[in-house]
Amino acid sequence: MKLSLISFAIASLALAGLALRPAAPEEGKKVDYRFSTPPVNAAGIKSLAELRGKPVLIDFWGTR
């Protein structure tokens, strides 16, 4: 009984976490963003809107 309560609590917390995390835009949804600090090597680009007409590949990565 105690074990099932703990399992239930863990599952609830996991679900709550998923619900709190903003969902990534679905395929087909418009993405726009204005950088608050120009990226390294921005070459004058301040927002994704300025790249309209050209494919943009966003790569999420980690240094560590």
Binding site: P25, K30, P39, F60, W61
Partner: peptide, 25 residues
């Protein structure tokens, strides 16, 4: 950059998103 122009598509790195010529994913 370290600013995320959109939420990551999934958990765990790396992740990628291709934005098309019309600005959609």
């Amino acid at each position: 950059t370290d600013e995320r122009p959109m939420e990551m598509p999934g958990s765990g790195l790396p992740q990628t998103a291709l934005i098309g010529v019309d600005g959609t994913v």
